[in-house]
């Protein structure tokens, strides 16, 4: 049975990765999960300097999901390289560093800092965080800006680049094509959907940022639809995510056209979720006589 997939020349032993921002840099979850078994670990977004993030409360629960406005708090790329990367290098998995910034120069600085790190397999460029005022989403909702930042990052990146797309757009295929046009090696989607929750007892917003990114099973059908549309609009591989809790959810994304999937919010409800999905894929393939995972990728037309 073959569960290996290849994205931009990078081999993943199985198509299951973590979703940025839900798994730190792997250390905390390594108490629950053998990181060697994962197709890849996608880190929390890293900027050129430490970011303090937003005020609390930063999260709220919603029906079948959650809303977050962490604000991309991170210790900065230097700390990541010095502390987190050596930790991750101990494992036989792909290290995919999520990169965030406020300006194109910020993104490029992080990407250049990582160019001497051969243990980093790929870079995921976050142009879709809805919770920071500048940067991020500013590039993720305008196809021209998305194409431009993609090509600027691509010029400087030693590793393949994955552009992480926002669902907060009118037509996801326009953004997917813009990333491809800019030279992206792959795209990942969906980031969170912008939402709002009111705390009626305190008569205020449930998260301090007023709005937050909605994730979890509540958004899964939207994510599957967008992955399907994007996969059919571009030639580069698509990494699918958005509310995957179980193997059945992961298979929906794969059949819709995702070459790999990321598990995010599910980690909070079940720290073993990644491993359970990996084992579930193997079981599904065995039970259904599937020899190669590629038989499933995009099989629903």
């Amino acid at each position: 049975m073959n569960t290996e997939v290849v994205i931009a020349g990078v081999s993943l032993k199985n198509p299951v990765m973590t979703a940025s921002g839900t798994f730190g840099s792997g250390e905390e979850y390594s108490e629950f999960v053998d990181l060697n078994r994962l197709g890849g670990v996608v880190t929390k977004g890293m900027a050129n300097v430490p970011w303090p993030g937003n005020k609390t409360p930063r999260i709220a629960e919603i029906a079948c999901g959650m809303m977050n406005a962490i604000g991309l708090q991170n210790p900065g790329i230097d700390v990541f390289i010095k502390r987190d990367l050596p930790f991750l290098k101990q494992f036989h998995t792909n290290i995919i560093v999520n990169v965030c910034g406020k300006t194109i120069e910020d993104y490029c600085e992080v990407v250049e800092r990582l160019s001497d790190e051969p243990d980093v397999s790929m870079l995921e460029i976050n142009i879709s965080c809805p919770n920071v005022k500048e940067g991020g989403i500013a590039f993720g909702q305008d196809p021209k800006a998305a194409e431009r930042i993609t090509s600027e990052v691509k010029k400087r990146a030693r590793q393949p680049i994955i552009m992480k797309l926002s669902p907060n757009v009118t037509d996801i295929t326009v953004m997917a094509k813009a990333a491809q046009e800019g030279g992206a090696d792959a795209i990942s989607l969906i980031n969170t959907l912008t939402g709002m929750k009111i705390d009626i007892n305190r008569r205020t917003f449930a998260v301090a940022n007023k709005t937050g990114g909605v994730s979890g099973p509540a958004i899964k059908p939207i994510a599957v639809r967008m992955v399907y549309q994007a996969a059919n609009a571009v030639k580069i591989p698509v990494i699918g995510m958005g509310g995957i809790m179980t193997v059945e959810d992961a298979l929906e994304f794969i059949m819709a056209g995702a070459t790999a999937v990321s598990i995010g919010t599910a980690n909070f409800a079940n720290p073993y979720a990644t491993i359970e999905v990996i084992e579930g894929i193997e079981r599904f393939m065995e039970n259904n006589g599937v020899e190669d995972i590629h038989e499933l990728i995009g099989c629903v037309k």
């Binding site: 979850y29 108490e31 993030g53 609390t56 962490i70």
Partner: peptide
């Protein structure tokens, strides 16, 4: 504080 992961990964519950 409101928490999500409970183990220090998600940075929701900071002070």
């Amino acid at each position: 504080e409101k928490m999500a992961c409970g183990i220090g990964a998600c940075l929701a519950c900071v002070c």
